[in-house]
Amino acid sequence: MNTPLLEIEDLYAGVAGKEIIKGFNLTINEGEVHAIMGPNGAGKSTLSYLLCGKPGYEITSGVIKFRGKNLMTMSVEERACEGIFLIMQYPVEIPGVPVTSFLKYAVNAQRKYHNQPELDTMEFIKMLREEGRKLGIDAEMLKRPVNVGFSGGEKKRLETLQMAVLKPQLAILDEADSGLDIDALKIVAEGVNNLRDNKRSLLVITHYQRLLNYIVPDFVHVFADGRIVKSGDKNLALELEEKGYAEFVKDK
């Protein structure tokens, strides 16, 4: 059997001394799409930041392995180069850094990590424009500073474009549907689906079932109070949509 892409074992973690993840287990194999659904405050975003290695998020115990390697000792950029990509819920604006040069730098940094030669600028721009066109991102937008003055939908499309260009092994979508109208949602979902193959995997973190109509998961997990409390197939998502999270949330 192949090594799983991502293994999380009995993870306890938190931020600023507050424990948020409490005994979390999850295994994702190559080519699988997992959805994690849960109520507000369950620690969904914390989980995505932990996987990316965001400073300030601390693991107290447990193991995270990515393709058999210990992920926890890797820096943010190493994890990205190893193939983890996070579509952020609130992408930040970076004034003064145009999209094109930002992405070119990111692509070449990752190529360098894998001992591949840098991409030729003209080639890169051609590729970027082509990928952008599929997502409704025109050349003008590519010249603008990263996310500056972008609408919510444009930001998510740019996230999707970055994913299309960086071609990660594991893409994590953190509430990728927040702030999107239905058309933008379809475009983003299509972009994500284009990347799907039997090697790449997705971890879709979401509040609502809506996104899962477009990105159909193989597994659905209910996430409450820092761990997975129930797992099932895509039908679980429909069930949750109907009944809500009430049965999983303890009275405090």
């Binding site: 965001k54 820096s75 952020m88 992408p91 003064g96 930002f102």
Partner: peptide, 29 residues
């Protein structure tokens, strides 16, 4: 900005380079 720095690094750009890019960007205007 730590959020900007994290964002850039999460795309594979090394910390030092990301800082340099932000410094360059700072002087753009």
């Amino acid at each position: 900005d730590q959020e900007q720095l994290f964002y850039m690094r999460s795309r594979g750009i090394g910390e030092k380079d990301a800082k340099q890019m932000l410094i360059n960007a700072y002087f753009t205007d």
